[in-house]
Nucleic acid binder design. Structure first.
Lengths: 240, 240
DNA sequence: AGGGTTAGTTATCGTTTGATTAACAATGAA
DNA sequence: TTCATTGTTAATCAAACGATAACTAACCCT
């Protein structure tokens, strides 16, 4: 009965003569099409959130909505696929080796890591999808941030201990406060991405220089604080 | 607001049976009811985002959905009201004086400010609604963060200049890099709230102590960096 | 060439959702 | 008691939304 929208597509299909080149229907093999769908879904959900509608997504893909359901049994499955594609793909295992590679000075190591990290992570899609997932309560965020803490921040704290001439975490466990200090650096840097991709604020173009500076600022401050902490710890004035 | 939930369940119970005990229909005057609606809307939208449905909101309020439309002409108006209520209310004008009060040492001043700031801002409602609004592209975020930059970060940079014995911004304008350094502190601290309210991660309880430490760490690092920057700037390499 | 496999479309179903209306019930102050 | 105000019940509308089945056409193989 209501053929307003259907009319448009019908026009395209039926108005063209059968003799004319009337093949707007592009036929791709499964893998190809699936890839296109996932890529567009990433962009789409990053923009509007996971409440974005399958019809709108299909329109952006230039295909019909039911086609999506021939590739993914449900919208939820597609969303799940988007998570996988965005998150598991971008963490570079070699980073874990880089941050503990004591043959490189800590400052250079951290700077290099964060420059690479920023290259991989500071994208519209990654930042916003990660944020949407967090707000939705998907536990993939916690898993990811656990990696950040275990593979990045704790090694960093360990190194800071050494730099300040303090006992290793094996002898004296890291305190929440030390780990929090490392989060200051990580959060401060990541917040640049939030400003850009969530709040649409301008950020400097020379990110590498900014990162180098922030790493330096942090390391300077952290070593001072660690030493102060050490002095406090040496004086046995507090709790048992 | 004390027993709204009890009322809700009662409604549910009595709605099916009209013969049961008379539903405690609470009759409030306009201002009162409106306040209740807005408060619950804040909680509700903070939890599920602005796509949350008016029917669900009404259910949580223990009232019927059409009642909402006797207080707000449309859902969008209610959302707009939520923004106003959450954001304009919580910025304390006296902070602007605090951060430039040179009679207090900078470290203490910053610590005191951030402790108060955290008390006011680190709430489930504020953090999540601010994030949802940002993702949605509402420009209220940009306005707010402009205030942060102008009233907090720039004064902080000015002070850092003085501490490092550098010329005042009046003589030598602040660089993007210096402002970025201040964002490192602010972002690092705010990221604690994101970890808690967006990613549902545990954070330390003694936030005040953490903040004091992070302010100290930052100030130590920033002054070192500023001096290094000063040495670079002193070498006249290309400026006329 | 033709038959079968399968990518893609059309048409539609059943729900949900924002929004609105009309009629009625309860409350409280004059 | 009267009567304006607050709130409910019930119903409805139109649009939006996820999902499905049945049909159509492009491509491959022998």
């Amino acid at each position: 009965m209501p053929d307003t929208k259907a009319g448009k597509t019908n026009d395209l299909a039926t108005a063209t003569k059968k003799t004319a080149k009337k093949s707007p229907r592009k036929r791709l093999d499964r893998g190809e099409r699936e890839k296109l769908i996932v890529e567009e879904a990433i962009r789409f959900f990053a923009e509007v959130g996971f409440e974005g509608q399958t019809r709108e997504l299909a329109k952006r893909l230039g295909v019909t909505q039911p086609l999506l359901y021939r590739y993914f049994p449900s919208k939820e499955d597609l969303v799940e696929r988007v998570y996988q594609e965005v998150f598991v793909r971008r963490w570079q295992p070699h980073w874990e080796e880089l941050v503990v590679d004591t043959s490189i000075p800590l400052k250079e190591r951290l700077t290099r890591f964060y420059c690479e990290y920023v290259d991989a992570i500071f994208t519209y899609e990654w930042v916003r999808i990660f944020m949407f997932a967090g707000l939705k309560g998907v536990n993939i965020n916690r898993r990811y941030l656990t990696i950040i803490q275990d593979k990045l921040l704790i090694p960093l704290c360990t190194e800071l201990r050494a730099m300040a001439g303090l006992p290793s975490p094996d002898d004296l466990p890291l305190t929440a406060r030390e780990i929090e200090m490392a989060w200051l650096l990580h959060g401060g840097i990541y917040y640049i991405a939030i400003r850009k991709f969530v709040y649409s604020l301008p950020i400097p173009e020379d990110l590498d220089a900014i990162i180098a500076q922030e790493v330096e600022t942090f390391l300077n401050g952290a070593t001072s604080s660690m030493k102060a902490f050490y002095n406090n710890a040496k004086t046995p004035d507090k709790r048992k």
